[in-house]
Design a binder for these strands. Structure first.
Length: 318
DNA sequence: GTTACACGCAGCACGCTGTA
DNA sequence: TACAGCGTGCTGCGTGTAAC
């Protein structure tokens, strides 16, 4: 016979639901334990108690792999809604006090990591009670996170048009061609794309937005792209270029200091810099939380000053 | 207000199982 | 066979509650 809601509530704890959520998202007890700062047996015990309280098996093993049962999927869906409700409740309570507070979870593609802290710094000055969390990922991971609805907002360029996404462009993202200091291309006043690509090219890994932008540009001009080496981050590419391993295309925002110090040289390649926009992105079906809405409104209301702010960062020192 | 007890939670040690 | 990942049993600690 099913339990009454009152009895069920008396047997459930928020801790059990939190542990379940962690196991479900991490796909394992050990990883969930590490995330929550517990030991694996403690996680195991919480899940066991939850299973007893609900009278359903929530996870099961096939070999060494952990799978969520159909009952577990139902629980996961409902727990996600409950945690969203709790988050809203927290925001509403803070709103009663006249302040916006709570968590803002943002996933930013790696090129945006140079921009997001400046944006947040301006935003948090206005809303000091908000706790922001930024996860830096590559474009492919950002798309996966959008599909899983794991973040309040995603900041990326090159927003896919085939998906139902709301996209709000807010800042110009220049991708510039660079070479090591003293490179023979550095002094040239005009370089064709073919001439530039004649030199050893350092590329980001597949799935990177920077790489995709360059690939699309080359495809439009029917130029073949061949990398001498692939690296997993823009910083790695930047250092490889400085070490003289080759040339690359990088977001200008990420190499401002190196350009000023003369450690890297921007190359005057035809049709460069490639211009893209950084965008605030979220699924069309998603209703932004009050905090997300505040961030979106903040960015939209500050477009002109954000442009000016970043222009001063790019300007050469007086 | 203090003390004793019960209970829940988490850590440690160890064992089991499946995989490479 | 070594290793990874999880379960079980035991123990200690913290907290809540009832008795004095």
């Amino acid at each position: 016979m099913p339990l009454s809601v009152q009895k069920l509530v008396s047997r459930l704890t928020l801790r059990q639901l939190q542990v379940f959520k962690a196991v479900y998202e991490q796909g394992g007890y050990g990883k969930a334990a590490a995330l929550l700062g517990l030991t694996q047996p403690a996680v195991s015990a919480q899940i066991r108690q939850l299973e007893q309280a609900l009278d359903h098996t929530l996870f099961e093993y096939v070999g060494r792999k952990l799978y969520c049962t159909p009952a577990g999927e139902v629980v996961a869906t409902n727990i996600a809604a409950m945690f969203a409700q709790l988050k809203d409740m927290q925001s509403d309570l803070h709103a009663l006090k006249g302040q916006l507070a709570g968590d803002l979870c943002i996933a930013a593609v790696s090129t945006a990591q140079y921009v997001v802290p400046h944006l947040l710094q301006l935003f948090l000055q206005q809303f000091p009670a908000i706790q922001a969390r930024i996860d830096v990922v590559n474009r492919q991971q950002a798309l996966e996170r959008l599909a899983d609805n794991r973040d309040d907002l995603v900041i990326m360029g090159l927003v896919p048009t085939e998906r139902p996404l709301t996209s709000l462009p807010f800042l110009d993202n220049q991708l510039v061609a660079v070479a090591p200091a003293q490179h023979k291309l550095a002094a040239a006043t005009s370089v064709s794309l073919e001439q530039f690509l004649h030199y050893p090219l350092l590329l980001r890994e597949p799935g990177s937005g920077t790489r995709l932008a360059l690939e699309q540009h080359c495809q439009q001009r029917r130029v073949t792209l061949q990398a001498v080496m692939e690296l997993g981050s823009n910083d790695a590419v930047k250092h490889a270029v400085m070490a003289g391993m080759g040339v690359a295309v990088l977001p200008k925002m990420g190499i401002l200091a190196e350009l000023r110090l003369g450690l890297l040289q921007e190359v005057a390649v035809a049709d460069f810099p490639l211009r893209r926009s950084w965008c605030l992105v979220y699924p069309k079906a998603k209703q932004p939380s009050p905090i997300s809405r505040a961030f979106i409104d903040f960015v939209q209301s500050q477009l002109a000053s954000i442009d000016r702010y970043f222009a001063t960062l790019e300007a050469p020192p007086a």
